[in-house]
């Protein structure tokens, strides 16, 4: 299981996924909407994920 954390909303969930792209598609998110941070490092969408990884999603849009 991968732990996914939405940084702006401070919400998190667990999901089964082999790479970042799969997280995006399973959660119906667009690549334009978030920057993915795996275990503290910014990563591309094709970055692979393994059990115990934490994936933080940083919202791109800043209303203001």
């Amino acid at each position: 299981m991968i732990k996914v954390i939405f940084l702006r909303d401070k919400k998190s969930l667990e999901i089964e996924a082999e790479n970042v792209s799969e997280v995006f598609s399973k959660l119906s998110l667009l690549k334009e909407e978030y920057v993915a941070i795996k275990n503290g490092k910014i990563v591309c969408e094709d970055e692979s994920l393994s059990k115990g990884d934490t994936l933080e999603l940083f919202t791109v849009a800043s209303g203001g």
Binding site: L7, R8, F58, T59, A61, S62, G63, G64
Partner: peptide, 10 residues
């Protein structure tokens, strides 16, 4: 990176 409370109405 907080969101303005009025942004949702835009």
């Amino acid at each position: 990176s907080s969101e303005c409370p009025y942004a949702v109405y835009a």
